[in-house]
Design a protein around this nucleic acid. Structure first.
Lengths: 156, 156
DNA sequence: ACGAAACAATACTAATTAGTCAAGTATTAG
DNA sequence: CTAATACTTGACTAATTAGTATTGTTTCGT
């Protein structure tokens, strides 16, 4: 199981915007510098985020990207979803079904259900983690914060 | 976030072996037929599992593969680990660090810590799920089983 | 011994994902 | 108005992952 480069870098770019929230737009150049990746690649990622309606852009001098809503209202789940879809959505069950395509394989069902369970759990954690939680430089640090009231995940 | 094809198919092959546990070795042909994928590909996967010491092979007539220990003692975590390493191990933090390579980016740390948290949670679920849990055709069905005593994941 | 059954190893092709490049278009400061 | 700034697009190359093919080696049944 892995996160794609797109998810990793896309999320990092979002965090840069989150940190800059109150200072107007951040240019591709700025983001690229802070993250140490090329402007071209940042551009590509930002376009994906733009299409996903997580950021808005303004051109011309002093232009750049800004979050479309406050960082505290953007969950990591939304970001990951835009960058790479949902886990269970990508799943091979439907895609790589082998030659046989109805549910002859008990294993297919079993595996499918396992992925689905994991997806639910991971999603719920990512939903509770906001960009602000991760971006906070001086705050709590880095661990995702969780609301103790809502910490009881629905475990299967 | 996604599971690789290798994880998906490798796990399925293991489940076939788990189902056949008490009937001697299962040949590549057999597995390939049950899963609807090519024998060549099954062969490749089985070799990975062999190197990972999860299965043993016998050649010659009536040969094939068998689990190296009972299905009930093999966790899905072990299997996934052999097939694709651990999530946090694969992580881009160390690999795709951009041009800058010490911890200048707060975002790097934050993201790294998030991945690590997720890895821990996913691993702990996969550790508690055995091949038997998934393979059981007539049993409980397909949802991973969890020991209620140990259901309280360490959430951050 | 011999031949069929079955695994083993390596090298190759195809598909997907990652990352780069070049040529645009829009916006604003002066 | 114009030049500099900055986003936009689409096509391209490189790297990784998925899947296939070929050829070889071991073991067993007769």
């Amino acid at each position: 199981m892995r996160f794609t480069a797109q998810e990793e870098y896309g999320l990092r770019c979002m965090l840069q915007l989150a940190r800059n929230e109150d200072n107007g737009p951040l240019s591709i150049e700025d983001i690229a510098k802070s993250e140490g990746i090329t402007p071209h690649y940042v551009g590509k990622l930002m376009r994906i985020l733009l299409k996903g309606k997580l950021v808005s852009s303004t051109r011309g001098q002093n232009g750049g990207y800004t979050l479309v809503k406050p960082a505290v209202d953007i969950s990591v789940e939304e970001v990951i979803h835009v960058l790479d879809g949902r886990l269970f959505e990508n799943r091979y069950c439907s895609k790589y079904t082998g030659q046989i395509d109805h549910c002859v394989h008990t294993s297919e069902c079993a595996v499918r259900s396992l992925w689905s369970t994991l997806d639910g759990i991971v999603s719920s954690i990512l939903q509770e983690t906001t960009l602000r939680d991760l971006a906070g430089e001086s705050e709590n640090g880095s661990s995702p914060k969780r609301d103790p009231e809502r910490s009881e995940l629905q475990l299967p």
